[in-house]
Amino acid sequence: MASPLHQFEIHPIIPIQLGDAGVDVSFTNSALFMVLAMVLISGFMVLGMRRSAIVPGRWQCAAEMAYEFIANMLRDTVGQEGRKYFPFVFTVFMFVLFGNLLGMVPYSFTFTSHIVVTFALAFIIFVGVTILGFVKHGFHFFSFFVPPGTPLPMYPLLIPIEVISYLSRPISLSVRLFANMLAGHTLLKVIAGFVWALGVFGILPLAFVVALTGLEILIACLQAYVFTILTCLYINDALHLH
């Protein structure tokens, strides 16, 4: 039986070396699924809207529903000022969602199960939101680290806590997604391993794997949602402080 972690291994498909230092940027199975996600999302949205009918068909309706879902989320959490960041939030949601769901296809690769990918996304969001906060509020942005109504003696205690919680945002955001994907796929693999090992009685873990696959699809959608709504909340914090 292959290791449950075997599915997370990265294999180069087309080896590419970049620059004199020979940085390895090979086209890998991970890159393949990122490209696939990009192509599928673009196809879903662009081809779905190609007729742009007043009365939409099924495909156009699905594309509009995705749009509406994120637009409503952004409006509810950030408000009307959030509209400028809608394309970014939408792209983040679709990319994570398709990454998670493509990973549910057997023999595929889940690029959102790699901490470096989720951390890069979370770090871009963190840096972007921090820059946004400084652009909007200047040095007044530091008042974000002081919750309103805090008595002065509490400042030395509260400010470090707030700063640490702010700085840990990219870590919690990325680790949440990465850990969920890693744990779900590992669990599926481990239980799937029992199906062969138990022979006739393998029917029991098989049924469990089927049920768990449904749960994993739910988690794939849920984690994309959580990742996106936290992005919206961070944007809201940067725009409105408290």
């Binding site: 990265i10 180069p12 949205m45 662009v46 394309p87 939408f90 790699h114 470096v116 890069a120």
Partner: peptide
């Protein structure tokens, strides 16, 4: 494997963002 992942993430996410921003979402 970090550089290749980051390289391809940038190479897919940025075009996807541009496609969504400039083409798909304005249509909707």
């Amino acid at each position: 494997v970090f550089p290749t992942q980051l390289f391809w993430l940038a190479l897919t996410f940025i075009p996807l963002y541009l496609i969504m921003w400039k083409s798909a979402l304005p249509r909707v």
